[in-house]
Design a protein around this nucleic acid. Structure first.
Length: 257
DNA sequence: ATGTCACATCTAATGTGA
Protein backbone atom coordinates (compact mmCIF):
# COMPACT_ATOMS: atom_id res chain seq x y z
CA UNK A 1 0.00 0.00 0.00
CA UNK A 2 1.31 3.41 -1.01
CA UNK A 3 -0.03 6.32 1.02
CA UNK A 4 0.64 9.99 0.22
CA UNK A 5 -0.14 13.25 1.97
CA UNK A 6 -0.07 16.70 0.36
CA UNK A 7 -1.08 20.18 1.39
CA UNK A 8 -2.12 21.40 -2.06
CA UNK A 9 -2.98 24.98 -0.99
CA UNK A 10 -6.24 25.12 -3.03
CA UNK A 11 -7.48 22.16 -5.08
CA UNK A 12 -8.57 24.51 -7.87
CA UNK A 13 -5.18 26.20 -8.15
CA UNK A 14 -3.39 22.81 -7.97
CA UNK A 15 -5.78 20.68 -10.01
CA UNK A 16 -3.61 20.03 -13.07
CA UNK A 17 -0.50 19.35 -11.01
CA UNK A 18 -2.39 16.97 -8.73
CA UNK A 19 -3.82 15.00 -11.65
CA UNK A 20 -0.36 14.67 -13.20
CA UNK A 21 1.18 13.67 -9.86
CA UNK A 22 -1.30 10.88 -9.12
CA UNK A 23 -1.00 9.60 -12.68
CA UNK A 24 2.76 9.31 -12.20
CA UNK A 25 2.93 8.11 -8.58
CA UNK A 26 -0.33 6.17 -8.38
CA UNK A 27 -0.75 6.17 -4.58
CA UNK A 28 -3.39 3.80 -3.21
CA UNK A 29 -4.43 6.47 -0.72
CA UNK A 30 -3.95 10.23 -0.94
CA UNK A 31 -4.58 12.58 1.97
CA UNK A 32 -5.08 16.22 1.01
CA UNK A 33 -5.13 19.40 3.07
CA UNK A 34 -6.16 22.97 2.34
CA UNK A 35 -8.49 22.09 -0.51
CA UNK A 36 -10.21 25.46 0.11
CA UNK A 37 -13.50 24.56 -1.56
CA UNK A 38 -16.90 23.24 -0.52
CA UNK A 39 -17.74 19.60 -1.26
CA UNK A 40 -20.19 20.49 -4.04
CA UNK A 41 -17.53 22.57 -5.82
CA UNK A 42 -14.81 19.94 -5.49
CA UNK A 43 -13.46 18.58 -8.82
CA UNK A 44 -14.04 14.90 -8.04
CA UNK A 45 -14.13 13.69 -11.63
CA UNK A 46 -10.46 14.02 -12.58
CA UNK A 47 -9.20 11.52 -10.04
CA UNK A 48 -12.30 9.37 -10.34
CA UNK A 49 -11.23 8.88 -13.95
CA UNK A 50 -7.97 7.45 -12.54
CA UNK A 51 -9.94 5.02 -10.37
CA UNK A 52 -10.12 6.98 -7.10
CA UNK A 53 -13.06 7.52 -4.78
CA UNK A 54 -13.35 10.47 -2.38
CA UNK A 55 -14.07 11.27 1.23
CA UNK A 56 -14.36 15.06 1.53
CA UNK A 57 -14.77 17.72 4.15
CA UNK A 58 -14.49 20.95 2.20
CA UNK A 59 -14.69 24.53 3.35
CA UNK A 60 -14.80 27.81 1.47
CA UNK A 61 -11.61 29.95 1.40
CA UNK A 62 -9.64 28.18 4.13
CA UNK A 63 -8.93 24.67 5.37
CA UNK A 64 -10.68 21.65 3.89
CA UNK A 65 -9.38 18.07 3.99
CA UNK A 66 -9.91 15.02 1.81
CA UNK A 67 -8.91 11.41 1.29
CA UNK A 68 -8.78 9.75 -2.12
CA UNK A 69 -8.46 5.98 -2.36
CA UNK A 70 -8.50 3.26 -4.99
CA UNK A 71 -10.48 0.98 -2.65
CA UNK A 72 -13.69 1.67 -0.80
CA UNK A 73 -13.60 4.34 1.93
CA UNK A 74 -15.46 2.92 4.92
CA UNK A 75 -16.64 4.54 8.16
CA UNK A 76 -15.89 8.11 7.08
CA UNK A 77 -15.83 10.54 10.01
CA UNK A 78 -15.26 14.32 9.84
CA UNK A 79 -13.96 16.38 12.73
CA UNK A 80 -13.52 15.21 16.29
CA UNK A 81 -17.19 15.20 17.25
CA UNK A 82 -16.45 17.58 20.12
CA UNK A 83 -18.70 20.47 19.11
CA UNK A 84 -18.58 23.43 19.22
CA UNK A 85 -14.86 23.12 18.47
CA UNK A 86 -15.44 21.57 15.07
CA UNK A 87 -16.21 24.70 13.05
CA UNK A 88 -13.11 24.40 10.86
CA UNK A 89 -12.69 21.57 8.33
CA UNK A 90 -9.36 20.18 9.51
CA UNK A 91 -9.78 16.43 10.08
CA UNK A 92 -11.29 13.51 8.20
CA UNK A 93 -10.83 9.77 8.69
CA UNK A 94 -11.74 6.65 6.75
CA UNK A 95 -10.86 2.97 6.66
CA UNK A 96 -9.24 1.69 3.46
CA UNK A 97 -8.28 -1.96 2.97
CA UNK A 98 -8.45 -2.48 6.73
CA UNK A 99 -6.25 0.50 7.58
CA UNK A 100 -7.73 3.45 9.49
CA UNK A 101 -6.39 6.65 7.91
CA UNK A 102 -6.78 10.27 8.99
CA UNK A 103 -5.98 13.41 6.99
CA UNK A 104 -5.41 16.40 9.25
CA UNK A 105 -4.54 20.06 8.83
CA UNK A 106 -3.18 21.45 12.09
CA UNK A 107 -3.71 25.21 12.57
CA UNK A 108 -0.75 27.34 11.51
CA UNK A 109 -0.60 29.26 14.79
CA UNK A 110 0.65 32.51 13.21
CA UNK A 111 3.03 33.58 16.02
CA UNK A 112 4.07 32.17 19.39
CA UNK A 113 1.89 33.70 22.09
CA UNK A 114 -0.92 34.79 19.76
CA UNK A 115 -4.56 33.71 20.08
CA UNK A 116 -4.03 31.49 17.04
CA UNK A 117 -1.06 29.89 18.77
CA UNK A 118 -3.25 29.00 21.76
CA UNK A 119 -5.82 27.59 19.32
CA UNK A 120 -3.12 25.47 17.67
CA UNK A 121 -2.00 23.98 21.00
CA UNK A 122 -5.62 23.31 21.98
CA UNK A 123 -6.25 21.69 18.61
CA UNK A 124 -3.29 19.33 19.09
CA UNK A 125 -4.65 18.42 22.54
CA UNK A 126 -8.06 17.72 20.97
CA UNK A 127 -6.34 15.54 18.37
CA UNK A 128 -4.73 13.47 21.15
CA UNK A 129 -8.09 13.21 22.96
CA UNK A 130 -9.73 12.05 19.72
CA UNK A 131 -7.07 9.34 19.29
CA UNK A 132 -7.70 8.22 22.88
CA UNK A 133 -11.43 7.78 22.42
CA UNK A 134 -11.90 7.06 18.70
CA UNK A 135 -8.95 4.93 17.54
CA UNK A 136 -7.78 1.53 18.73
CA UNK A 137 -3.99 1.65 19.18
CA UNK A 138 -3.83 -2.03 18.27
CA UNK A 139 -5.32 -1.51 14.82
CA UNK A 140 -3.42 -0.48 11.67
CA UNK A 141 -3.63 3.31 11.73
CA UNK A 142 -2.01 6.22 9.87
CA UNK A 143 -2.19 9.88 10.86
CA UNK A 144 -1.22 11.97 7.83
CA UNK A 145 -1.17 15.66 7.16
CA UNK A 146 0.24 19.13 7.54
CA UNK A 147 1.10 19.40 11.22
CA UNK A 148 2.68 22.84 10.98
CA UNK A 149 5.31 21.62 13.47
CA UNK A 150 8.93 20.68 12.74
CA UNK A 151 9.43 17.96 15.36
CA UNK A 152 13.17 18.42 15.91
CA UNK A 153 16.01 20.76 14.95
CA UNK A 154 17.14 18.35 12.22
CA UNK A 155 13.80 19.13 10.53
CA UNK A 156 14.73 22.83 10.28
CA UNK A 157 17.11 24.40 7.75
CA UNK A 158 18.39 26.97 10.27
CA UNK A 159 17.55 25.89 13.83
CA UNK A 160 19.20 28.95 15.37
CA UNK A 161 17.14 31.36 13.28
CA UNK A 162 13.94 29.40 13.95
CA UNK A 163 14.55 28.76 17.66
CA UNK A 164 11.40 29.53 19.62
CA UNK A 165 9.56 30.62 16.48
CA UNK A 166 6.24 29.37 15.17
CA UNK A 167 6.46 25.75 13.83
CA UNK A 168 9.55 25.11 15.99
CA UNK A 169 8.73 26.32 19.50
CA UNK A 170 8.94 23.98 22.47
CA UNK A 171 5.20 24.19 23.36
CA UNK A 172 4.31 23.05 19.84
CA UNK A 173 6.87 20.27 19.87
CA UNK A 174 5.66 19.13 23.29
CA UNK A 175 2.05 19.10 22.06
CA UNK A 176 3.12 17.06 19.04
CA UNK A 177 5.02 14.63 21.28
CA UNK A 178 1.78 14.18 23.26
CA UNK A 179 0.07 13.15 20.02
CA UNK A 180 2.89 10.77 19.11
CA UNK A 181 2.86 9.42 22.67
CA UNK A 182 -0.50 7.85 21.93
CA UNK A 183 1.55 5.27 20.04
CA UNK A 184 2.70 6.69 16.73
CA UNK A 185 5.96 6.48 14.81
CA UNK A 186 7.28 9.13 12.40
CA UNK A 187 7.55 6.92 9.32
CA UNK A 188 9.98 9.25 7.53
CA UNK A 189 12.42 8.97 10.45
CA UNK A 190 12.19 5.19 10.36
CA UNK A 191 13.93 5.37 7.00
CA UNK A 192 16.00 8.58 7.11
CA UNK A 193 18.08 9.77 10.06
CA UNK A 194 19.76 12.74 8.42
CA UNK A 195 18.62 16.35 8.22
CA UNK A 196 18.15 18.56 5.16
CA UNK A 197 14.84 16.93 4.24
CA UNK A 198 11.97 19.40 4.15
CA UNK A 199 8.35 19.39 3.00
CA UNK A 200 7.57 23.13 3.02
CA UNK A 201 9.37 26.16 1.69
CA UNK A 202 8.12 29.74 1.93
CA UNK A 203 6.87 31.13 -1.37
CA UNK A 204 8.80 34.32 -0.73
CA UNK A 205 12.28 34.88 -1.98
CA UNK A 206 14.72 32.09 -2.74
CA UNK A 207 13.78 29.73 0.10
CA UNK A 208 13.13 26.74 -2.17
CA UNK A 209 16.11 27.43 -4.42
CA UNK A 210 18.34 27.61 -1.33
CA UNK A 211 16.53 24.67 0.33
CA UNK A 212 15.56 26.80 3.32
CA UNK A 213 12.64 24.69 4.44
CA UNK A 214 10.92 22.88 7.27
CA UNK A 215 9.73 19.28 7.57
CA UNK A 216 6.19 19.85 8.82
CA UNK A 217 4.17 17.36 6.72
CA UNK A 218 4.14 13.91 8.25
CA UNK A 219 2.95 10.33 8.02
CA UNK A 220 2.66 8.91 11.53
CA UNK A 221 1.95 5.20 11.94
CA UNK A 222 0.68 2.94 14.70
CA UNK A 223 3.14 0.24 15.77
CA UNK A 224 1.73 -2.44 13.48
CA UNK A 225 1.78 -0.12 10.46
CA UNK A 226 5.26 1.19 11.28
CA UNK A 227 6.48 -2.40 11.25
CA UNK A 228 4.99 -2.80 7.76
CA UNK A 229 6.61 0.38 6.38
CA UNK A 230 9.14 -0.14 3.59
CA UNK A 231 10.05 3.44 2.75
CA UNK A 232 9.07 7.07 3.01
CA UNK A 233 10.02 9.95 0.73
CA UNK A 234 9.30 13.62 0.17
CA UNK A 235 8.81 14.47 -3.49
CA UNK A 236 10.80 17.68 -3.78
CA UNK A 237 10.24 17.63 -7.56
CA UNK A 238 6.58 18.54 -6.98
CA UNK A 239 7.63 21.85 -5.39
CA UNK A 240 9.54 22.96 -8.49
CA UNK A 241 8.41 25.32 -11.22
CA UNK A 242 5.34 27.43 -11.80
CA UNK A 243 2.01 26.84 -10.02
CA UNK A 244 3.51 24.70 -7.27
CA UNK A 245 2.06 24.41 -3.78
CA UNK A 246 4.37 25.67 -1.05
CA UNK A 247 4.28 22.09 0.28
CA UNK A 248 5.71 18.95 -1.32
CA UNK A 249 3.92 15.60 -1.02
CA UNK A 250 5.23 12.98 1.38
CA UNK A 251 4.53 9.33 0.66
CA UNK A 252 5.22 5.95 2.26
CA UNK A 253 4.87 2.34 1.23
CA UNK A 254 3.66 -0.51 3.45
CA UNK A 255 3.69 -4.27 3.13
CA UNK A 256 0.31 -5.96 2.89
CA UNK A 257 -1.17 -6.72 6.31
C1' DA B 1 14.52 43.26 1.89
C1' DT B 2 7.08 43.03 5.15
C1' DG B 3 10.49 39.40 -0.68
C1' DT B 4 4.83 35.22 -2.69
C1' DC B 5 0.73 32.96 -3.20
C1' DA B 6 -4.62 32.10 -2.97
C1' DC B 7 -8.94 33.83 -2.02
C1' DA B 8 -12.34 37.11 -0.96
C1' DT B 9 -14.74 41.45 -2.04
C1' DC B 10 -19.33 46.81 -3.43
C1' DT B 11 -14.40 44.15 -10.28
C1' DA B 12 -10.13 46.54 -8.71
C1' DA B 13 -6.99 47.34 -5.22
C1' DT B 14 -6.77 45.79 -0.77
C1' DG B 15 -7.36 42.72 3.46
C1' DT B 16 -6.61 38.07 5.44
C1' DG B 17 -4.18 33.95 6.13
C1' DA B 18 -0.44 31.39 5.34
Amino acid sequence: MKVASWNVNSIRARHDRLVAWTAEHRPDVLCLQEIKVENDQFPRESLEAQGYRWALWGQRTYNGVAIAARSELRDVVVGFGDEPGDAEARAIAATVDGVRIASVYIPNGQAVGSDKFAYKLAWLARLRAWLDRAVDPGQPFLLCGDFNVAPEDRDVHDPAAWAGKIHCSEPERAALRQVLGWGLVDVFRRHHEEGDHYSWWDYRGVSFFKNRGLRIDHIFASASMAARSRGCEIDREARKGQNASDHAPVYATFDAG
